[in-house]
Simulated scan of single mutants.
Amino acid sequence: MSVSAKISRRAFATGLAVVAFGRKVSLAQGFAGLGGEASGFAAVTPGRSFVFPADHAPHPDYRIEWWYLTANLSDAEGRAYGAQWTLFRQAMQPGPQRDGWANQQIWMGHAAVTRADTHRYSETFARGGVGQAGAEADPFRAWIDSWQMRGLDGMSAMNIAPLQINATGADFSYTLRLDADKALVLEGDAGYSRKSERGQASYYYSQPYFTADGTVTIDGKSVSVSGQAWMDREWSSQPLAPDQTGWDWFSLHLGTGEKLMLFRLRQTDAKPSFAGNWIGPDGQSVALSPESIEMTPIAMTEVADRKLPTSWRIAVRDRGLAIETLPLYARSWMGTSFSYWEGPVSFTGTHRGIGYLEMTGY
């Protein structure tokens, strides 16, 4: 399979360029071209001051950006569900924003629901400049076609809550209300998320404290659900190095109230690199030492003509964490134009809880 067919939300930029404009992606540019040249686009550097609500809006000087939410849900009988909502923006060219159809922004939406016996997904595309898709800071709204993530009355800019999200596919839909009583947290080093030692990085913040209530509909049958949700906001111009081939990313809700974000970046001719943040019940986010993180596959699943590691052993020695993860549905394949694995997980060990796993580049 070509490298442009292995793209997830973090590898959207050049892959979408292939679909929209027929450009070829060189393997020498790294995973999906995200290690390629980004001349003319803004650079990510340490020490940025985040400003809310302004940073909830797009950053068109940067090449790639997303608004991304995952929710771990259950119904009244305790059956587990997952929901994903993602809006991507990519600038096809740098420079001042042009009006109408001349606008250089391309937008893509992904939505999915997962149950123990099924995974459903949908995808939609839009061109910028004509109102079909976009994002606004105040009042907050991110949308593509009829899919929306929008602030409700009294929304706190620091909490980005309350929100309502909705999406509809051919055989599923969902509507969720999201509330949070704690402020956003900055991932990486105060929001600067290093992806390589050669300077590749992104700006990255999260809202890991959402509670969720709403309805999920699959094949015309609706159920009321509630649970926990996690939102990521990230933007960059060159987030990967040329020799980085993909990643494995977790967002985890620990039963003790802590939150954990981890990722492993796989590289050619080198050991993987690790990064993560431990987020306390009080909202304090602390970057983890890469040397303290272990992520080891322990079970494989064959899906979409490839084998993927769908169960993992994870350790964070500095925090006394040692867990094993289990997918809700091992075949949670996003068979979109840019395909990847993404779905809800549970875990046991020194800590118990739920979360989400994304894997790309396999």
Rank of each mutant, 00 (worst) to 15 (best):
S4Q: 13
A5L: 12
R10P: 11
L16N: 13
L16Y: 14
A20M: 09
F21E: 14
G22N: 03
V25S: 01
S26H: 10
L27Y: 12
L34V: 12
F41T: 11
A43V: 13
T45W: 07
G47K: 00
V51P: 14
P53L: 01
H56S: 04
H56L: 06
A57M: 09
A57T: 06
P60D: 09
R63S: 11
I64F: 11
E65A: 03
Y68C: 00
T70E: 05
A71W: 03
A76P: 07
G78S: 04
R79W: 06
A83C: 07
Q84E: 08
W85S: 00
W85D: 00
L87E: 01
A91G: 11
M92T: 13
P96K: 04
R98M: 05
A102I: 09
Q104D: 15
Q105S: 07
W107I: 01
A111K: 00
A112P: 10
V113P: 07
T118K: 06
S122C: 14
A135G: 13
A135T: 12
E136S: 12
A142S: 15
D145C: 04
G151Q: 04
G151K: 00
L152R: 05
M158T: 10
L163T: 09
Q164V: 07
G169N: 02
S173Y: 05
A180L: 03
D181H: 11
L186C: 10
S193W: 01
E197R: 06
R198D: 14
R198V: 09
A201P: 03
A201M: 03
D219R: 09
K221I: 11
V225L: 02
S226I: 07
G227L: 01
D232L: 02
D232W: 00
R233C: 02
E234A: 00
Q238C: 07
L240S: 03
W249F: 13
F250T: 02
L252V: 07
G255I: 04
F263S: 08
R264T: 05
L265N: 04
T268R: 11
F274T: 00
F274I: 00
F274N: 01
N277Q: 08
I279T: 02
G280V: 02
G283H: 00
S289K: 01
I293G: 01
I293L: 05
P297I: 05
A299K: 15
D305P: 14
P309Y: 12
T310C: 09
A315M: 14
Y329V: 05
Y329R: 04
Y329F: 14
T336W: 08
T336A: 13
S337R: 04
E342F: 00
P344A: 12
R352L: 15
I354H: 15
I354D: 13
M359N: 02
G361E: 01
G361R: 00
